[in-house]
Computed example of a mutant assay.
Amino acid sequence: MGIEDAGPGTVRPGGRTARVRASVLRAAGDALAEHGFAHLDLVDVARRAEVGKTTVYRRWGTVTGLVADLLLEMAEESLPRTETGSLLGDLKANARLVQRTLADPRQGALFKAVLAAATGEEKTAEALHRFYDTRVKEWAPCVQQAVDRGEIPQGTDAHEVIRAVSAPLYYRLLTSADRLDEAAADRAAEAAVAAARAGAYLRGDDGHA
């Protein structure tokens, strides 16, 4: 995304303004986790961050602009992929990272709030899509390496495999009160590997995708 395409709050500031951005985004994340998107208020965020409300309005403009920047920061700050030498090892590392994030009281509540908002807010949905696109692209090379090693078939859609790992974890977060633990993460990774080996994620003429 070029600067000319960026909406309010999506251009990362540098220098002294970085501290303000960090404080405001931390405050926005806390407010989202506590009260949800519907009650997110720029004046309250400014108060929490101990910055002037004019600064917040000038830099982010709207609640959706602020949430978009929060998601951008989360994507940028997420841990890089782990490469263990096997597809199962790599995908378990991916699944456990997702599990730890969603099981965290603050982060889990924050993601629930953003997911709920994305169903009715187009700009929030676009920001959420960019967040997941960034994370999927970060981990997709693990799948391509598995193709190159001969672990899974040529033509496997790497992005679909990565999505398949986290999908059951998000489903459990949103539909169940059961604890989201490492065992659930490992099962998600094992299922994705088994499906990939069976050719479930082949692209185009190579399969069904």
Rank of each mutant, 00 (worst) to 15 (best):
R179Q: 06
R130S: 12
E190K: 00
L32D: 02
V45P: 01
T10R: 11
L169T: 10
A191V: 06
G9V: 07
A27M: 04
K53V: 15
Q145R: 15
L87F: 00
K53M: 11
V147E: 03
E77D: 12
L174V: 03
D133E: 14
P8E: 04
A127G: 10
R19E: 12
A28K: 10
A46E: 07
R172W: 00
H208N: 11
R163E: 14
G204R: 05
A140M: 08
E121V: 06
A103V: 04
L25H: 08
T64G: 07
L88H: 01
R19D: 12
A93Y: 00
P13Q: 07
E76Y: 06
A191C: 02
C142S: 15
H159W: 04
L128Q: 07
G9N: 07
A118R: 02
R81I: 02
D133F: 12
E34R: 13
P105E: 11
A191D: 09
G14C: 00
M1N: 09
Q107P: 01
A195L: 15
A103N: 06
G85M: 05
L174F: 06
A33F: 05
D186S: 11
Y171W: 09
Q107R: 13
E34N: 07
T156N: 02
A49S: 11
R187T: 11
L115A: 09
L202R: 12
A164D: 03
L70G: 05
R19M: 08
S176F: 04
R106Y: 02
R197D: 13
L66T: 08
A198F: 05
Y132V: 11
E190C: 01
T54G: 12
Y57A: 09
